[in-house]
Each structure stands twice: as structure tokens, then as C-alpha cells.
Design a protein around this nucleic acid. Sequence first.
DNA 1: TAGACTTTCGAACGTTCGTTTGAAATAGTC
DNA 2: GACTATTTCAAACGAACGTTCGAAAGTCTA
Lengths: 209, 209
Amino acid sequence: MEPSTKHQILDAAERLFAEFGVDATSLRAVTSTAGVHLAAVNYHFGSKDGLVRAVFARRLEPLTAERLAALEALLGHTDAPELDDLLRALFEPALRMADQPGGTDFLRLLGRMHTDPEAFGTLGSLLELFGEVRARFVPQLARCLPELAHDELCWRLHFTMGAMANAMTSRAVLRWMSDGSAGDESATDVANHLIRFVGAGLRAPARLA
Amino acid sequence: MEPSTKHQILDAAERLFAEFGVDATSLRAVTSTAGVHLAAVNYHFGSKDGLVRAVFARRLEPLTAERLAALEALLGHTDAPELDDLLRALFEPALRMADQPGGTDFLRLLGRMHTDPEAFGTLGSLLELFGEVRARFVPQLARCLPELAHDELCWRLHFTMGAMANAMTSRAVLRWMSDGSAGDESATDVANHLIRFVGAGLRAPARLA
DNA sequence: TAGACTTTCGAACGTTCGTTTGAAATAGTC
DNA sequence: GACTATTTCAAACGAACGTTCGAAAGTCTA
């Protein structure tokens, strides 16, 4: 295992970034939560931006690999995967992170990034990972939904990303909306909810009757 | 018309808050953009929090009133409104703001709030406006979808809010996803896209076949 | 024009931020 | 145990932040 200081900083930063946002989280809050010295961040990561990049890289690279591997596994069985299976390949690796320690924190952070991309301009080449996922999945999704114009497909995928981001972030809002009766489901349960909702939305007729 | 200083501050703050977030926007950036003196914010709004509240109040109160009025108009025609009409009553007043000057900025700001509620803890009683909308719309939506358990309905409404927030924020991501061919639609077009997607998602069978 | 009130202005306050620096402490190698 | 490299520590830096305050400027009524 790497020296524990780096891990403790990464874990604390991930949690605080998810809870309060990157901007609103000071390095002093990170280091005091992690129980390490303030200067350790600049020593190990160079700068706050370096820390942000490290927090994302630690999870985003395996996540992208899992998504692409799940798609490859699908394409190994058939040339024409079902829509639900494509969605599962997209969602489950993300939501499965919720079962790892700190995974829910990172998912919330990822949800933040979806609606606040400008605050993460420092991520740079890490964002190309999303480009790889898009390049591989979108043609397959388009093949499952041939009656959809390209524009309409993109709009619906945009909505899909929003639904997924909301599934990741702030279950507090969900609990408020349900008066506390929903919000404790497992990652797989959430994935099933998502696939039912998003699958039907993507399959909707292209124009109102 | 009110003294123009307050309006200029509100307009500049709305735009910068939407673009960079509340935390990342300094009062110096707001006042220099608005072309007024730094101290004018504290003079007219008391504090930065007061400015945030004023930015939201200016748009949120009319928006809530329009949503509730649209629902009342529906219920005046029939006791059992259609799901699509309910969704339109919910979405159109929001997306119609996009046709007003600065409206798109506020929509982006609203989308930010959806996934970053903790950064807006200062809004206080303004958030009760959402509670009113929820209290009036959710029972009607539940009546349209009687086969859905309460938990499942809440999950799907959560996804719905995410899809709407993503429709509001950062069309840049949509343009990136579509290679520039989507993202220039009018508010009504977006509402129609949303109603098709979300309507089908909400109407999906409760369990996978 | 004189006076009362509102608004704008310049300047500074105290705080917190990310970052840097050099010394102290630790770990690893011969 | 001495030498080297790595890591941790205490302390401070300059910059940017929200806020405050008294004077200057502007506005309106009598």
C-alpha cells in the first residue's frame, strides 16, 4: 500500500468535495479531516488542482475501463445488444461504486461535475475518458433506436445523464420528496429503477401523437 | 422602474452566478460587471446572502405562481388531467423563462441549485415555494400513475427533476455530445422533448418483464 | 436657495485562502 | 551508527474575499 498520508488526503478530499463542492472546501479542512499537516497536500500533489485531478483519476480510470469492458463483453455475445443491456453496462459500473468505501462520495462528486463542468476545467485530459465512453456507446444506442433522429437521441441522452446524475447526488432531496420512504435502496436497485425509467424514455415515440 | 443600480446588480449577479457558481463569484466581479461601486451590494442588499436571495426571489416567485396557476387552469377543465398536461404545467413556465432576457442564466442557476442544494442553504423560506409545487402536483401525478408504488413514483420524479435540470444547464455538454447538431432549440421544443422522454419514463411498467 | 434624505464613493478592516520555505523528524542503505 | 533521501512540521507570505465607515455627491421638498 502507498504511504497512508496520500490515501487519507484523497479520502478526506473526496468526501468534502462531494459534500461542499471543490471551491467551498479549503485545504485546511481537508488536511485537518485527514489528520495530516496542511503542507502535505502541496508536497504530495503539487497544488489543490493536482489534488482534484488525483481524486478523479483514482476512480474515473477504473470506472471507464469497467464500462468499456462491459460493452465488449456484450458485443462478444451478440452483434446487436439489447437497449437495457447497454444501459446496464453504462450504469452498473457507476452505481456499483456505491458499494465501495467512499464510493457514494465520489458518485456525488461526479454528479456535481455533470452540472458544474466549468468548476472542473482543471481536469483536462481526464475528461477524454468520457469521450471514449461516448464514442463506443452512442453508436450502439443509436442502432437500438433507429427511429430517432440524431438530435432527438442526443437530447434524450442528455436527459439520461441528468437522471443518472440526480440518482447519484443528494438522496436528501429524494427523501424530502418521498417524506423519507425512499432513498435507502442498494446500487443494483437504483440501477433497475434507472433502467426502467430511462429505457422507457429513450424508447418513446419520436413525436407526440 | 426601480433605481437602475439594483437591477444592474441583479442582472450581473444572475449571469455570473449561473456561469461560475455563487461561491466562485466575488462581489467585486459582480459590481465591476454591473458598472457600480463595490459597496453598493451591501448598501442595497445588506450582504452577499441577501443578494443571492434577491436574485432567486425575483424569478422564483413568479415561476411558482405560474406553475400553480397552470395547474389550477387544468383542474378547472377536468377533475382528472392527463399526465402530459401536468408535465407541461410543470415544465413550460420554467422553460418559457428562457425567452426572457437573462432567463437562460437563471435556469442554469436553478439547475445548479438542484444538484448543489447545500450551497444555497441561505435561501431559507424561498425553498418553501418548491414545497408548494410539490404538494399540489405530486398527488395529481400519483393519480395519473396508480400502478406505481409511492417509492417508485418518488424515484421517477427524482429522475425527472434531474432530466429537467440537465435540460436547463450547460447546453454546451449537449452540443459536445451531438457534435454541435443539437442545442439550439426553443423553450417549447425543449419542453416537448422533455415531456416525451419523461412521460414515457414515468409511464413505464413498474417491474421489468 | 436651504436643508433633509438617499445614494455613491474611496479606503480600509479583519479573515481566510493557496502556497512557499527551511528546519526537524523519519526511513532506508551501506 | 553515519549518510542520504523522503516526509512532516511550524511559520509565514501575498492575494483575494466580504464587510464596514465616514465623507462626498446627488436628489427631492419647502
